[in-house]
């Protein structure tokens, strides 16, 4: 029995569970609807998942940093990133660099405001970021001024959708991004500090960390990553058709983070799991779409699956131990 223990720990690892389910979905999907697990089909699903992957990275950092700390402005920030990028580049490749810089700076600054509201003023994260979302949405509207914004420039589309070895650029970007995130979480002081302050805020402060500053910066990063995802998303879509474009990413990023094994109590869970979580969610959605299940059934299965995953590894401590 004793030899089984390490194996069991491995099996109970959220990343392993999520990967297992994702693979299972591919197999069952292929079985029920041949072509589901075709290379090109998988690549398509990964492409769609990559944007959520980048948004969820920011959410991952924020959620790590403490109990109940969350960023619900990311969806609107995706929209802002896309619209602002499109408006500044104005369809010309020469403006892409400037557009990129502006998107990064603006979204980072708004995130900083989130962080200040949460830490210095003391507004609960949930409601602070939610209200900031309203402001951000109106910023998007302000940029468009009610008129259509020019779409992606050729180079933006090429970077995101252009294929090398039959794989679109965004997937390469995502892979590099994943490596960077894992490095950030495991091999930098900032990353380690996030885990530790998320686990015990006061102990982190007493270890000499500037917890306030760290949390503000983390909100900045989260917004910036959402803006980045929006910028890429524009390249993917080619044009922006509505202001609620990114809304779905808000809660999807939270779900992906949790499915990837990040604890909403803070201090636990890395990006590899989150990336797998994003892929799993996309596989699940595609799987349910190709099955001849009516829309309502898809929703119910989606919800139940989530609950099952949560029960598998996101349970809280008993009140009575």
């Amino acid at each position: 029995m004793k030899n089984l223990k390490p194996v069991l720990i491995y099996v109970k690892n959220p990343t392993v569970i999520a990967t297992g389910i994702a693979l299972l979905l591919l197999v069952v999907g292929e079985f029920r609807a041949p072509g589901f697990a075709k290379f090109s089909q998988i690549i398509n699903m990964l492409t769609v998942a990559s944007f959520l992957g980048i948004v969820a990275a920011g959410q991952n950092l924020v959620v790590l940093s403490g109990k109940g700390v969350i960023d619900l402005s990311v969806g609107k920030m995706v929209t802002l990133g896309a619209i602002l990028g499109g408006a500044i580049a104005n369809g010309m490749d020469s403006g892409v660099v400037l557009a990129f810089m502006v998107v990064m700076i603006v979204t980072f600054s708004v995130g900083i405001l989130n962080g200040i509201g949460v830490t210095l003023i003391g507004i609960p994260p949930l409601i602070m970021t939610l209200s900031m979302g309203i402001v951000v949405e109106s910023m998007s509207r302000f940029v468009t001024g009610g008129l259509a914004v020019k779409g992606a420039t050729p180079i933006m589309s090429t970077i995101v959708t252009g294929r090398f070895l039959d794989i679109p650029g965004i997937i390469y970007i995502w892979i590099v991004f994943t490596v960077l995130m894992i490095f950030f979480q495991n091999n930098t002081r900032f990353g380690m500090s996030l885990y530790n302050m998320g686990n015990n805020d006061e102990a982190a402060r007493l270890s000499g960390l500037n917890v306030t500053w760290l949390r503000i910066t983390t909100y900045g990063l989260s917004s910036m990553l959402a803006g980045l995802a929006g910028f890429f998303y524009l390249g993917y879509l080619g044009s922006i058709y509505n202001i609620s474009l990114g809304n779905k990413y808000t809660l999807a990023s939270v779900v992906a983070v949790v499915v990837g094994g990040v604890s909403l109590s803070g201090g636990k869970g890395g990006y590899l799991g989150v990336a797998v979580g994003c892929i799993l969610l996309q596989f699940l959605e595609s799987f349910l779409t190709v099955q001849s299940i009516p829309p309502w059934g898809r929703e119910v299965i989606m919800g139940v699956t989530l609950l099952v995953l949560l029960t598998a590894y996101a349970r809280e401590k008993k009140l009575r131990q």
Binding site: N196, N200, A203, L206
Partner: peptide, 15 residues
């Protein structure tokens, strides 16, 4: 005021 309970011994030592 001391430990980071779910973190590893290593992380608890080096921060």
């Amino acid at each position: 005021y001391g430990v980071f309970p779910v973190r590893s011994i290593l992380e608890n030592t080096v921060l």
